[in-house]
């Protein structure tokens, strides 16, 4: 039931989030403060993004962002730019940046997850989903 309520409020949430404050969340098992700052820096500097979630797990970095309303058509460009920036900063990680809502939704759900293995599996699965075309 709670899920259903969420599902109806999603459109409201999306419009409600277009304020000035960006919601940026980072999942990192090692809890490295430096990483947090850097992710925040990159996302803050991008004006087309209003929200982002980054997951560091097992040499992989998944960044799920949401483009501002009306900027949907720029998604691919945003993804490209951010991928470049993240790859420069986190050379040792395999980076995937996505503006897809599915990845954003799943990434946010992973924030609460304690089991690292599960997060790892999920991220791999999401990467595969992202590749699907139809």
């Amino acid at each position: 039931m709670k899920k259903m309520a969420f599902f109806f409020f999603v459109p409201l949430l999306l419009t409600g989030c277009s304020g000035n404050e960006k919601t940026i969340e980072v999942y990192d098992v090692l809890d490295d403060a430096q990483k947090r700052v850097e992710v925040r820096e990159v996302l803050d500097s991008n004006e087309d993004v209003y929200s982002g979630t980054a997951i560091f797990v097992d040499q992989q970095l998944l960044v799920a962002v949401q483009a501002k309303p009306w900027l949907d058509y720029k998604k691919e460009k945003i993804e490209k730019e951010l991928t470049k920036q993240f790859e420069e900063r986190f050379t040792e990680f395999d980076v995937l940046v996505s503006a897809d809502y599915k990845l954003f939704w799943e990434a946010n759900k992973l924030m609460e997850e304690k089991d690292q293995q599960k997060v790892n599996d999920k991220v791999k699965k999401l990467k595969e989903l992202e590749k699907e075309e139809t």
């Binding site: 899920k3 969420f6 599902f7 109806f8 999603v10 459109p11 897809d100 809502y101 599915k102 990845l103 939704w105 989903l129 992202e130 699907e132 075309e133 139809t134």
Partner: peptide, 24 residues
């Protein structure tokens, strides 16, 4: 179209569809 969008979110949230694949 809003109903259509709600259905889009329904498929994204409850099934393994991305924005790219949810159209069908």
């Amino acid at each position: 179209c809003t109903i259509g969008h709600a259905i889009t979110y329904f498929y994204i949230i409850f099934f393994d569809f991305t924005e790219k694949t949810v159209g069908n």
